[in-house]
Write a protein that binds this DNA or RNA. Structure first.
Lengths: 145, 145
DNA sequence: TAATTTTTGATTGTAAACAATTAAATTTAT
DNA sequence: ATAAATTTAATTGTTTACAATCAAAAATTA
């Protein structure tokens, strides 16, 4: 494993995919994918966000978000409405079913609890802290976000 | 941010994508994507691996690897040869251009150095340690890997 | 041996992810 | 005011990523 072990990015790549997989089963009850769930979390926090604002929060661009939001619209969870003031902007509004889904979603965020079950609290909080630090470092070196 | 902040998986999701983006520019000189680069790393470490063995090392299944390997074959970096002993198995051999590419690849693993430049050595090693621990925890809860 | 199960990779279909480009509207500068 | 630059989202094309299924071969069991 000499080569792969020298790649500092590799564990992050695998961990991210395994986490998405861990969310898959719990999210089936909402018929959402993991990225769709994250978009819904944004909107439950603040309804009526512009596409660009969702993109800022999730570090995703319109090439990813536009089709994803159209799928959420097709599921009748959101409405996409072009702003009248600035017709470049598209606001994303939760529909009633979209708002209602939040109650079902409260259990999802504990999907990783089993994974961390036998972890020391200290390690969990340290990892969280270092991941946030890394996120900031990466963003400050990123052109896009 | 109340909702997103409660999602323990979110930072891993963003970090992984920002890391892939950070590798994009350095990897352009090899005309490789990040996942293709990881496959090549496996093969530079051990030539002639079966598809399933690459999948184990990278936690990827054949639905991802088969088309990726066909692209590497189209680039003349690998050959795919069905085993004579067990005709279900397909061995992946490096071509001469595939082997030669390794010399150009030595610089790639330092693509994140700038990101970690002002990090304390202690934090870096702690993060690496905790990520490997998390990887093991996730794998032990995974059906697939 | 014959039937069943497992292994292995390929295929199909859907959904992200993102670079590059386009189009339209707004803002800024001249 | 008008030209140039910026913002914003959509579009296009390529590449992952993965579930589900299939087919063939091999290994196991009856």
């Amino acid at each position: 494993m000499a080569n792969l072990e020298k790649e500092p990015g590799f564990p992050f790549y695998v961990v991210s995919r395994l986490i998405s997989q861990a969310y898959r089963e719990p999210l089936e009850s909402l018929s959402l994918t993991y990225p769709q769930y994250l978009v819904m979390l944004c909107l439950w926090e603040e309804d009526g966000l512009m596409v660009s604002q969702i993109g800022e929060r999730l570090s995703l661009d319109s090439g990813t978000l536009t089709p994803l939001l159209k799928r959420l619209e097709a599921m009748n969870l959101v409405k996409r409405e072009r702003s009248e003031k600035d017709e470049r902007k598209v606001g994303i509004q939760l529909t009633y079913p979209g708002k209602s889904l939040q109650s079902k979603a409260s259990l999802i965020s504990s999907s990783l609890d089993a994974v961390f079950a036998n972890w020391a609290e200290k390690d969990k909080s340290k990892l969280e802290q270092l991941m946030n630090k890394l996120l900031e470092s990466l963003k400050s070196h990123s052109q896009k976000f």
